[in-house]
C-alpha cells in the first residue's frame, strides 16, 4: 500500500503494459481479463504458496506493478481467513487493492494437483488469482467475478485445461466455453 501512496500515478504513467480498466458486469467474460502471459503451467514440486507467489508476480508484472510483494501480502492475508478453495478443484485467491483501475487476473494450471494446506482433503488443480479495486462501488463487480469464475471453472473445464498444451490453448478453451 505504501508504494501506491508514494507513487500513485507512477504505475499507470510509466508502464505501457498497464491493463486497461475492465468493465465487468452481467456479460462478464473471464477470457477478457486473462492474457497468455498471465496463464502459467507450473512444473511439479510446487506448493500452494509458491504457485501463488509466482502467479502474483506474473499478474503484477503484466500490469506493470513493480511492488508485487505488497499484492502478494494482501492476498496471503485474505488466504488466512475463510478458505477460497472450492471442491471443484478451483482455488480462487483474491484481494481488493487500492489504486488499481480495474481487474487484474491470472491463472495457474496444475497438471499435478496440489493440496490446500487449510483443507488437506481438497486438491487444487487450477488457481485463479485476481485483484479488484478497493472501492465500495466496485464490490458488486468483485462478487460477480467470484461467482462468474467459480461458475465457469467446473470439473469438466478443469479437466480440459490440465490436459491442454499451454497458455494459448487454455485461453482458447475458456473463450470457446464463454462464446
Amino acid at each position: 500500500m505504501a508504494w501506491f501512496q508514494k507513487k500513485p500515478t507512477e504505475t499507470a504513467a510509466e508502464s505501457p503494459k498497464t491493463t486497461p480498466p475492465v468493465r465487468v458486469g452481467k456479460g462478464l467474460k473471464v477470457a477478457s481479463i486473462l492474457a497468455e502471459d498471465t496463464i502459467l503451467f507450473p512444473g511439479e514440486g510446487h506448493d500452494k504458496a509458491a504457485v501463488l507467489q509466482t502467479l502474483a508476480a506474473a499478474v503484477c508484472g503484466k500490469a506493470g506493478i513493480a511492488d508485487w510483494a505488497s499484492f502478494l501480502a494482501k492476498v496471503q492475508e485474505r488466504e488466512q481467513g475463510i478458505s477460497t478453495t472450492l471442491d471443484t478443484g478451483l482455488s480462487l485467491p483474491h484481494a481488493r487493492m487500492d489504486g488499481i483501475p480495474g481487474i487484474l487476473a491470472g491463472m495457474a494450471v496444475l497438471k499435478k494437483p496440489i493440496p490446500d494446506p487449510k483443507q488437506p482433503d481438497l486438491a487444487i488443480r487450477v488457481m485463479f488469482l485476481f485483484f479488484s479495486p478497493n472501492k465500495q462501488d466496485a464490490f458488486p463487480l468483485h462478487l460477480q467475478l467470484l461467482r462468474g469464475v467459480s461458475s465457469l471453472f467446473q470439473p469438466a473445464l478443469i479437466d480440459q485445461l490440465t490436459a491442454s498444451s499451454g497458455p494459448a490453448a487454455a485461453l482458447e478453451l475458456i473463450k470457446k466455453l464463454e462464446a
Binding site: 475463510i82 471443484t88 478451483l90 462478487l143 467470484l146 462468474g148 469464475v149 467459480s150 461458475s151
Partner: peptide
C-alpha cells in the same frame, strides 16, 4: 466471526460453483 464482505465473498464463490 466473519465480516460481511467475507461472508458475501464466500457465498458468491459457492453459489457460482454450484449453480
Amino acid at each position: 466471526k466473519l465480516s460481511t464482505d467475507t461472508q458475501l465473498e464466500r457465498l458468491a464463490m459457492t453459489w457460482g460453483s454450484l449453480q
